[in-house]
Structures are given as structure tokens and as C-alpha cells.
């Protein structure tokens, strides 16, 4: 066990999985010699060679399309899309091809692969280095969508994704790549895809969040405890699809109040689905209306990013709002 950053957790998973399985190949823009613009692929080409770790031409549809062809042939490609804002040229490949290969071929051909991509705000990246496009992918049957928030989960979930039989969109909260540190077990380590994690136990209100919003919600929950004596529970979803409905419903039935926090534009964001699940299946246990805090329905701004991305103040005010409801 070692203390690592989230980015190191990811690198550890890639390193470990490449060592265990020679079918694992890593490629994408600048991931070889340059080791990725965020250095997620540090030392990988050095250790595993250019055959298994290489930089590609600048075509996202080519990167994902080639990965699909490799997966169909029996390899385990783990391509990187440098920023999730650049994933759209590959959107057709992801939605029309990767997600549907197993289904449309009646199970004759499968597509086990993992697309890693950094997402979200917090690095002063403006419109095109900050987006959170997870809802496009959770809306696509055939894909699994995973977003870790701790270094240990980053390693364990990525390892599970690589070992799995389905295509996975693995979104990495780049704002906290180096900001969070935590225990990361050495060597062979997996965290199952699917189950959510109770990040903070509480009894008065449930916050549902994921990725870079988890530490923001934790800070707000501490403040609410300290100032108002509110005992807030935080559920870190970790896997967005398949969704852990049981964990969501259990928590909300316990607390009777739900706050959902995500940084993508609020309308039709992933948090809307959580709200719908609670409304459909646990409305009888609600003591207050469900509340969503999301990004605004505007393109991601540069200078005012700190106002756009939900922060601990907005979350704290949201907690108060839901708990003040009589």
C-alpha cells in the first residue's frame, strides 16, 4: 500500500494490467514518448515498448475505430482521448459501433475496450478543455461509464474495466488528478464496476455525486455539520452505468432528502436520471423536494469558471435549502 495521487493510481493500473496481460495496448495522441499531456502514461512506453504503447495520428475517430478493430480481433485496447472535449469526432464510433457490436452481431463479435479520457473543469481550460459529456454516454445502451474520485478507486475501477468484457468510457476528473491523495494497494487490485461507495455516512440528507464533485461535496458537508449540526450522507456513484439504484434508494429512504450535484449543464444531465429514479421509486419517503445543483446551461466559460463549476458554497447553500424545507 502506498499513498498516491489519482493520476498515479491510473498509471499504476495501466502498468499493472499491461504486465498481467499482453493483449493490453495503449495508444492515443502524445501518449508514447511524451507520456500523455497529463503524464498518465508515464514510463509505459519505456517499459513495454513502442509496439504496445504508441502515439497516433491526430484523428479521434481513427483512434477509437482502430481500437474497436483490435478489440473485435481479441486484443484489449485502452485508447486515450486527450480531453473529453475532443471525443466528439469519435462519437459516431462510440455510439454506432463500439456500443452496438455485441448486440447487432447477436454476440458473434464483442468489443471489450476502455476509452480513458480526462473530463471536467478546474484547470482554466475554457470551452474546449473543460466539458463533462458523461450523459451522452450513459444514454447509449451497450456502454459502461465509470468516473472515480479517489486514487484507490481510480486504480481498482480502471483495472476492472480493462479486465471486463464490455466497452467502458472511463472518465478521469482532471481537476483532482494531483489534488487528491490516498491509499492505493500495490499490484493486482480491482474494484468492481457497478456498486456505489458511501463516501460519508449521515442521517439528515443524501448527496449523490461523482468525480471531482465528491471532494467539493465533502467540504460542504463538513461545513454544514460544523455550522448547522446537519449530518449529511454522501454517495459517490463511481459507476454511472450500470447504475447502483439500490444504493441510491437505500440512502434516500434513510434520510428522506436528496441533493444531486454534477458539473455538466443541468438540463438533461446525469443528475436528472438520479432525480427520476428517486421520484419513481422512493417519492413516498421524501420529506422535501429533490434538488439538483449542476453547471449552468451555457458553454463552459473561461474567466468565470469558478462561478460555473459547483463549489462548496453552492453545495452548502443547497444542503441548507433542502434541510430548511418544512
Amino acid at each position: 500500500m502506498a499513498t498516491k495521487t489519482l493520476l498515479q493510481g491510473i498509471n499504476d493500473a495501466l502498468h499493472t494490467e499491461m504486465g498481467r496481460d499482453e493483449r493490453v495496448l495503449i495508444f492515443g495522441e502524445d501518449v508514447g514518448l511524451n507520456e500523455g499531456v497529463f503524464r498518465a502514461t508515464t514510463d509505459l512506453q519505456k517499459e513495454f515498448g513502442e509496439e504496445r504503447v504508441f502515439s497516433t495520428p491526430l484523428t479521434e475517430t481513427g483512434i477509437v475505430g482502430a481500437a474497436i478493430g483490435m478489440a473485435v480481433y481479441g486484443l484489449k485496447p485502452v485508447p486515450e482521448i486527450q480531453f473529453s472535449d475532443f471525443i466528439y469526432p469519435a462519437f459516431d464510433q462510440i455510439v454506432s459501433e463500439m456500443a452496438k457490436f455485441r448486440y447487432r452481431s447477436g454476440g458473434e463479435y464483442t468489443c471489450p475496450m476502455v476509452i480513458r479520457t480526462p473530463y471536467g473543469g478546474g484547470i482554466r481550460g475554457g470551452l474546449y478543455h473543460s466539458q463533462s459529456p458523461e450523459a451522452y454516454f450513459t444514454h447509449t445502451p451497450g456502454l459502461k461509464v465509470v468516473i472515480p474520485s479517489t486514487p484507490g478507486d481510480a486504480k481498482g475501477l480502471l483495472a476492472s474495466a480493462i479486465r471486463g468484457e464490455d466497452p467502458v468510457i472511463f472518465m478521469e476528473p482532471k481537476k483532482i488528478y494531483r489534488a487528491v491523495k490516498g491509499d492505493v494497494p500495490d499490484g493486482d487490485y480491482t474494484v468492481p464496476i457497478g456498486p456505489a461507495r458511501v463516501a460519508r455516512e449521515g442521517t439528515d440528507l443524501s448527496i449523490f455525486c461523482y468525480g471531482a464533485m465528491v471532494p467539493v461535496c465533502e467540504m460542504a458537508a463538513e461545513k454544514a455539520q460544523e455550522k448547522d449540526g446537519f449530518n449529511v450522507e454522501i454517495i459517490d456513484l463511481r459507476t454511472l452505468y450500470p447504475i447502483d439504484e439500490t444504493a441510491i434508494l437505500q440512502s434516500v429512504r434513510k434520510t428522506g432528502r436528496a441533493l444531486i450535484v454534477y458539473e455538466a449543464p443541468k438540463t438533461c444531465g446525469y443528475g436528472s436520471e438520479i432525480a427520476a429514479i428517486i421520484a419513481e421509486q422512493a417519492v413516498d419517503s421524501l420529506e422535501a423536494p429533490i434538488k439538483r445543483i449542476g453547471g449552468f446551461d451555457i458553454p463552459f466559460p473561461y474567466t468565470l469558471e469558478k462561478i460555473y463549476v459547483p463549489d462548496a458554497i453552492r453545495v452548502y447553500l443547497g444542503i441548507k435549502d433542502v434541510l430548511d424545507y418544512a
Binding site: T61, G62, V64, G65, A66, A67, I68, G69, M70, A71, V72, Y73, G74, L75, P77, Q93, E97
Partner: peptide, 9 residues
């Protein structure tokens, strides 16, 4: 692109 990926594999 799948054909290329399969050929690369």
C-alpha cells in the same frame, strides 16, 4: 478504421 485495427492486431 475497424479493418485497420484488426490488421494492426
Amino acid at each position: 478504421t475497424h479493418a485497420v485495427g484488426t490488421a494492426m492486431a
